[in-house]
Design a protein around this nucleic acid. Structure first.
Lengths: 150, 150
DNA sequence: TATTGTTATACTCTATAACTATA
DNA sequence: TATAGTTATAGAGTATAACAATA
């Protein structure tokens, strides 16, 4: 893995993010809102501070974002019985439905593009999936060091 | 390429976009500003309306974004000699330098993660680069961009 | 005292509507 | 009339600072 390879992969990221934005459905949720909701769906309930760090926004911004999600019925706040200062944020069924809808739209649009790729390109993308998962996992560990017993 | 494969690749996109956001330098430019500047760099001068459509924002929003970029010295507006109504937007040397800096930061951070991946994962990512380029090319040829949140 | 979260205030970025200038 | 862009106004989303409540 040379520095050149890293630069190439980084450039490919730029392309993919641009493509992702084009494939994503319009309306409703901001980028941070969608990412936060997705995190609540994948990882389960979380504290406000935790979510703020995760998404790279300030604590007040996350307070307000969660308030908006709650007003929209997509998330809800609950008290932590063990610590009165803590707010635990949960995704709601409506939140899951919204996420699911957005993913379905994106996937449908992406599938239409993938179909038009040569077979070897399709295979290369599929073959890279475990590497992406591992990369994401390592990045997650980097900025959220503890909390893992392993 | 099954529907399941498409869904998996779509999910991997979600992970990559999250990772990209975390790797990107915080200061200065908004996501749209960075994307617009990058487009001006890659594709050359463009009209305001063209840029607005490309980035999925309104025309007034693009007017203001370009004004901000111009105030920051990163882009400049020029008249189109062929049509008095048209404004052609150019990137400046300072704009290119800013882009270059942002890419360097992102690449450095990404390289640190890539180094810690097993060799076969590194190879799978490198092997997927041509497929990403092709995917991006096909998407570019497809219809107009959607408004992008999520 | 330290941690968790909220409130107050201001700034950036965006959209829609109404406008000006050119074709 | 149609097109390219700007100005006016309002709202969403964000940050920093100051605050309240709990540990």
């Amino acid at each position: 893995m040379t520095a050149y390879d890293a630069a190439q992969i980084s450039a490919a990221f730029e392309e993919l993010v641009r493509l992702y934005r084009r494939l994503s459905p319009a309306g409703g949720l901001s980028a941070t809102a969608a990412a936060t909701l997705s995190s609540l769906d994948r990882r389960g309930p979380a504290r406000l501070t935790e979510l703020a760090v995760q998404e790279g926004v300030s604590q007040p911004a996350m307070t307000q974002l969660i308030t908006r999600l709650q007003d929209a019925g997509l998330a809800k706040k609950a008290a932590d019985p063990a610590d009165g200062r803590v707010v635990l944020v949960h995704i709601t069924d409506a939140g899951r439905a919204e996420l699911s809808h957005r993913r379905a739209v994106r996937t449908t649009r992406l599938a239409a593009l993938l179909e038009r790729l040569p077979a070897n390109d399709q295979e290369a993308l599929t073959a890279a999936l475990p590497a992406v998962a591992e990369l994401s996992r390592k990045a997650g560990k980097a900025s959220e060091p503890e909390r893992s017993t392993a």
